[in-house]
Structures are given as C-alpha cells and as structure tokens.
Design a protein around this nucleic acid. Structure first.
Lengths: 221, 221
DNA sequence: TAGATTGTTAATCGATTAACAATC
DNA sequence: TAGATTGTTAATCGATTAACAATC
C-alpha cells in the first residue's frame, strides 16, 4: 500500500469521513463517482479529494473517475477496519456503558474483549455481551490476553496512573474520554482524546457569535 | 471585548483547552504564569499562546506574564460559560442518557431544560433530574420555552428532518452525535458534529501505524 | 534602572487550491 | 479520436513560529 506514518494528520482525520460517504454511495448502488461529484456531496474541493487519495496511490482512472466499491474497500484497508485490535474498556459508568453498547467496535477495526470498573457492585453485570470485571483484574487479564487498545472512561484523577500501567502491560493505543489530556509522555502510543466538554464549550462560543449577530441585525432593522 | 466571528476556527478550538488548564492552575493556587511556562505545560509554543490570546485583547503584562485567575475569567467570558443557553436533548437511548447525566451543562454555558424520545416506554422516566417527554411534544415545548441549543442523540436517518423542524422552531445550535453530517443547509446555525465512530477509526489507523513500525523494528533486530 | 516578558510584526512552514499535462 | 477526469506540479493562502521593540 503506502508509507504510513508519513501522512499528514489533516489527511488522516478526513479518511473516516470519506469512508462514511463512500459507504452511503455503495448502499445506494452508485458504481462510479468523480472527484467533482464527491466534492459537491461532501462540501470540499475536488482538488483536495484527489490530493488526499493520492497520498495512498492512484485509485482512480482518467476520464472515468473512481469506482465507489473499490475506493471504499481501499480506504477501509488503509484505516484498518479489518484489523480486530483487541480492545478493553475501563470505567463502566454512564458514559462507559453507553460507549460499550452504542459503538460498533467490530466495523472499526476493534474487538471489545473486556470491561472493567472499580465499583464492586458492577462486577459481573453484563454490558454489550461482556461481564464487567473488577479493576484489580486488569493486570492478569492483560498478561493473558494482550489487548492493544484501551478505552478510558474514568475520572481525570486516575487517568495518568492507569494509562501508565496499561502501557507497561503492552497497550499501544488509548481512546480517552477522560478530562485529562493524555497524549504525551510515551513514544509509539496512539491517543485519541475525546473531550466532550471542550466540544460543548466550542459550541457555546459559536452559539454566542450567532446570537450576537442576530441581535445587532435586529438593532439595525 | 472583541470582534467575535472574525476569529479563526483553529484559535477557537484551542480556547476550551486553555480554559481547562487555567482552571487547574487556579485550583493549585498558582497566581501568575508566563506564556513560556504555560507553553511547556500544554506542549505548544509560547508564541502561539500569545498570538491566540491577543486575538481578544492584551490580558498580560510585560515583564510579569498573565494573572491566572483574570485570564481564566476572561476566556470563560469569551467562551460564554455564564450564558445559560436553554438546551434540549433529543434521543434518550444509551448515549443520550449518558450525555445528559455525564456532561455538566451548567458550567459550559448551557442549561438543560428538556429531554425527548420517540419510545413511549421512556416517557416520564427521570434522567439528570428531568422527566423524558415524547418526541411529539417537541413543537409545543419549543414554542413555550424557546430553547437555543439542541443535543441530537438520534439515528442518522431522522437527523436531517428533526434538525430542520428545530431550526424552524428557532433552535440556533446543534451538538450532533448522530452519524449524519449536519453543518450545512442553514446559515446562522452553529454545529458541533461529534463523530465518535470517526474518532475510533482514526485511532485504528494510528494504532496500525504504530504496530507496523514495531513489526519492522523487530524484523531489523 | 535592569531583567523579564509581553504584544506585534516579519519569516517560515504546511495545507489547500488552481492549473494542466497525461491518459483512459 | 474527442471528451472527461485523473495524477501531479505550481501558486496561493492561512496558520505557526521566530524575532524584537515596547514596556512593566
């Protein structure tokens, strides 16, 4: 395929969106699409699409465009949707349980094999077809099963310590929902911080901008 | 304060993170901080911090740095943490209920005043101190209460239609957790798409990169 | 005053867009 | 072949970083 690691972050973050749109087109039985048509659907430039795709190789054909199914498959392969990375989830509170049940890990390169929580009352409770284990079992579980990805739905205060332990146990990637900015500290560890609070604050800011605009418009009128 | 609307998106998306770090410093009773110290904590450049802050005005003092409490307050004001935008949540499935209980809306410029779901079995159930109403009551509720922000935790297929209706009812901003790419179509509407699936796919890609690197390292050794 | 650190301008870097020759 | 559309190079744009004069 292509020299991974050399691809810019801006491109990578657009790939899942391409994958999603191509999946839709595929479902609608669209066979081919040009960069221009796709650009209109996705509200970006045709140039950018061609530029992005060519980071990974020439998937199109001059005069024709792109075959939807082929392109969908190729991007899927690039993202790793077929990888089945062993995944554990830590913190089975409201958010953790919702993530476990709501997210389709299997279609996104992940295979959820364990859920853990400090609260003994939750031990044994079944979520997403998995019985919750107590946090104290993590070490043993990791040594036996070697999970690659950990989903962290735990309070900020514990995040760094638990992440540290997991790295020592061989975990290579974190999907971090805690308020703590994981990223740092280790080389060769992948991190996706999902800061829902930050997202809501950004929305508050933008809402503000819009409401102020409306107000000044009214005053002018 | 400052000419909102003219600020670049890259800057705005960094503001909540500044706010978070300054909140921490405040809790630790740190009185002043220089752009260089803050840059080290946040792993970005001092230049960028000064550049970002100066979009909104000179909050610092030459030779001294920034007063933590003052800067925290100013950024809070810019973001609108004190706005209490009336907010409704639509879709009280696993994710919707988790968001309602897990997110502190009040400290992020929002005030959650209603939760709605199509499932009649959920009507009357209390979540985050609010009784769930049936979706059919949305119109009446909006006319009476004029919510500004809507949190969408509904299936992709319904998103566009419901968003359309809400816009007609005066909603000005969407926090969108559905798989559908809201953004578009309307002017003067703020949207934050939270595509958890895309985030996980990005992580799968990066995990892939790391695992491949490790493999080639091993082969070399 | 001397030292420190900002606010701000200028330089660099990277990402996006435009253009066009290659080619199906 | 003629028309369409890619792959790719060059131009533009914006964001980040560096530098430094202003000033507390």
């Amino acid at each position: 395929m292509a020299k991974h690691g050399s691809i810019s972050n801006s491109v990578i973050k657009r790939l899942p969106r391409y994958y999603r749109f191509l999946g839709e087109l595929l479902k609608d039985n669209i066979v081919r699409i040009s960069s221009r048509e796709l650009s209109q659907k996705m509200k970006l430039t045709a140039s950018q699409i061609r530029q992005d795709l060519n980071c990974f190789g020439g998937f199109g054909q001059q005069g024709y465009g792109y075959n939807v199914e082929e392109l969908h498959n190729e991007i899927g392969k690039i993202l790793g949707v077929d990888k089945h990375f062993k995944t554990i989830l830590i913190g089975a509170g409201n958010l953790g349980r919702a993530i476990a049940t709501h997210i389709n890990f299997e279609t996104r390169g992940c295979h959820l094999i364990g859920i853990f929580d400090v609260n003994p009352a939750l031990t044994g409770v079944e979520v997403a077809g998995i019985r919750i284990s107590h946090t104290s079992d993590i070490t043993k579980f990791c040594k036996e099963n070697q999970p690659v990805i950990a989903v962290l739905c735990i309070p900020k205060a514990n995040t760094q310590r638990i992440a540290d332990e997991l790295v020592k146990l061989g975990v290579k990637a974190f999907w971090n929902f805690s308020h703590y900015d994981l990223s740092i500290d280790y080389e060769n560890i992948a991190v996706e911080n999902v800061h829902l609070g930050d997202s809501l604050l950004t929305l508050a800011y933008n809402t503000n901008v819009i409401c102020e605009e409306n107000d000044t418009d009214k005053n002018k009128a």
